[in-house]
Write a protein that binds this DNA or RNA. Structure first.
Length: 571
DNA sequence: GCCGTTTTCGGCCCGACTGTTTTCAGTCG
């Protein structure tokens, strides 16, 4: 089983236990294990195959979970899971995904009304049977009915870039409040996650009512879910929830820290506070009810002798270990990027000409770019054959004679063919300055086959990098089943680079995979895959993910001048 | 189920809001 499959089993077990009303900390242990396994830098099989290593060395994995992981890896299932499924039908887990329904209420519905599915739940609500139950009432029944609509509406997380649009619009809207003193977004948006479930906004204001009224008047608001003295939640017509918190100025840093999360990061932080006789909540850091810090995040972290972690690192992955060892990475920044090595022009499926792309790159301060139009196999995009490609390269030579301050590299995005091999001959590729190889067809092939195609491409001496190495499209398409461990090792051996594609729907390699590539000593190249002039501005999305992976300037190949890049890949 | 500068048992982060409860449980983040 892959790490992701093992993680999914633990998540399912956690749901099932939750439903049964099991000890919340036991449930948490399974959820933590799911996350830990999902975030690992190497496969479980690799660790199991190494006699010098034990799964229990992994934080949060004890004897019991280690045995369960080994069983899963060996047999693909767990007796415990089957036993749980015999007690709780899998279909009732859907009840837990209805907003407002937690394990207790869901279990009551299942046990007392024999409800096994969302459809049965809807019928029971419409027949007003739910409001008869103890602990339920008319309001609860209505809330469930409304929640069913949401659960049915294929609720997806927004891409970070989409959330950013809403966020900036909301901030601008709220800044019109006269009473507003401070405002900041928090949550997974601030941590730069590739997708965002909802938006958290913090404000300091002398008049909470004014700010809440103003939020309610935002054009996109569909309903007000809750409104109290300090907290308000609304749902936008797009289905996106926005939570507003109004806090006093002396608590702003504590609240920002608290609501930025992640949840797991905060659990670790609060545990550390407790060990020092301190208490941290969204109002500040307290010793014996005595406020000692909270105005800024720096102040809050300083009470625990911790640095103010960049939000992108706050995932309880490695940041606390790094801080303790004094090795917190200095994260890469967008202004350190010198070149963009993946973009298209009107020669294939781009919207801008070669000259326009070069002018736009120059205007953005880039020192070099590679034009990497598709190869002929990508017929839909009017992919180039050898003749057309060489014609484009001749144009690039002429362009370079005129250009000052920017070098345009003769590149190509060569397709890795379904049957293996590349879509252009080696003698053509040999004349390129930069070659990215990528899979567009045969994405559903079995693991061995698709992995071999990519490994062969890496071994080709003319290939510089593999573009979007897993092919995922957020909310739309799963990554292909490629053995990334093998890809990292091959890239290391052949001195090749792996791309972090900045397109907001790709962001592939993702943060976890980028961190793993770094562990393997493989540099990442952050590219835009721009299909237009504006596409060049997507770089910031890629930078955010690289930062989440803990990458520094040195880990990102295209922070170097082109001459050094060439040496890095031995070309 | 995990874990240990409270160490093999007894903790495990903390508070706002809602609804149904007449003092609090459930859910959420």
């Amino acid at each position: 089983m892959t790490n992701a499959q093992i993680a999914a089993v633990f998540e399912e077990i956690a749901d099932l236990l939750d439903f049964q009303g099991a000890n919340a900390f036991r449930v948490r242990a399974y959820r933590n294990a799911a996350r830990t396994v999902g975030d690992l830098h190497e496969t479980i099989d690799t660790i199991l195959a190494d006699p010098n290593r034990k799964l229990t060395d992994i934080d949060g994995i004890g004897d019991d979970l280690a045995a369960k992981i080994a069983t899963l890896a060996r047999t693909g299932d767990l007796p415990m899971r089957q036993e749980l499924l015999a007690e709780v039908p899998e279909s009732v887990l859907a009840l837990l995904r209805v907003p407002g329904l937690g394990p207790k209420k869901a279990a009551a519905l299942h046990k007392q009304l024999k409800i096994n599915s969302l459809d049965e739940l809807r019928e029971a609500c419409l027949a007003h049977r739910v409001q008869e139950l103890k602990g339920f009432g008319v309001k609860t029944e209505q809330t469930i009915l409304a929640g069913l609509e949401i659960a049915g509406a294929a609720q997806e997380r927004l891409l970070w870039a989409e959330a950013d649009d809403y966020c900036q619009a909301l901030l601008t809207h709220l800044r019109a409040c006269r009473s507003l003193e401070q405002i900041a977004p928090a949550g997974s948006y601030r941590r730069g996650r590739d997708t965002v479930g909802d938006l958290d906004i913090l404000v300091v204001s002398s008049d909470a009512g004014e700010v809440m009224d103003r939020l309610g008047a935002f054009a996109g608001v569909a309903d007000v879910l809750a409104r109290g003295d300090t907290k308000m939640s609304v749902r936008l017509a797009a289905g996106f929830q926005v939570d507003l918190r109004v806090v006093p100025a002396e608590s702003f840093g504590a609240a920002l820290q608290y609501f930025t999360g992640s949840k797991q990061h905060n659990v670790v932080l609060r545990g550390r506070a407790k060990a020092r006789g301190l208490k941290i909540n969204e109002y500040g850091v307290f010793r014996d009810e005595q406020y000692i810090a909270g105005r800024t995040e720096e102040e809050v972290y300083a009470t625990l002798d911790l640095p103010c972690f960049p939000p992108e690192l706050r995932e309880a992955r490695r940041e606390f270990d790094w801080a303790e060892a004094g090795e917190l990475p200095v994260l890469v920044e967008q202004n350190q990027i010198q070149g963009d090595l993946h973009m298209h022009t009107t020669a294939t499926d781009g919207a801008a000409t070669l000259d326009e792309m070069a002018a736009a790159a120059l205007a953005r301060g880039l020192k070099y770019i590679a034009i990497t139009d598709h190869s002929k196999r990508v017929t839909m995009a009017n992919g180039l054959d050898a003749t057309k490609l060489r014609r484009q390269w001749a144009e690039i030579d002429k362009l370079n004679e005129r250009l000052k301050g920017l070098v345009v590299l003769k590149g190509v995005e060569v397709d890795i063919l379904e049957k293996g091999g590349l879509d252009l001959d080696d003698d053509v590729l040999a004349d390129a300055d930069w070659v990215v190889a990528s899979v567009h067809y045969g994405q559903n092939q079995p693991r061995e086959q698709i992995t071999k195609r990519i490994l062969d491409a890496i071994a080709n001496p003319h290939v510089s990098a593999i573009a979007h190495p897993t092919g995922r499209l957020l909310n739309r398409r799963k990554p292909y089943d490629v053995d990334l461990d093998a890809v990292f090792q091959a890239a290391r051996t052949h001195r090749k680079l792996l791309e972090l594609n900045s397109h907001p729907q790709r962001l592939d390699l993702d943060d976890v995979a980028c961190a793993a590539a770094k562990q393997h000593g493989v540099p990442i190249v952050i590219s835009t895959d721009a299909h237009s002039v504006d596409g060049l501005d997507k770089l910031r999305y890629g930078i955010l993910q690289a930062r989440r992976a803990g990458l520094t300037k040195a880990d990102v190949a295209n922070t170097r001048p082109w001459a050094e890049m060439r040496k890095l890949i031995g070309q």
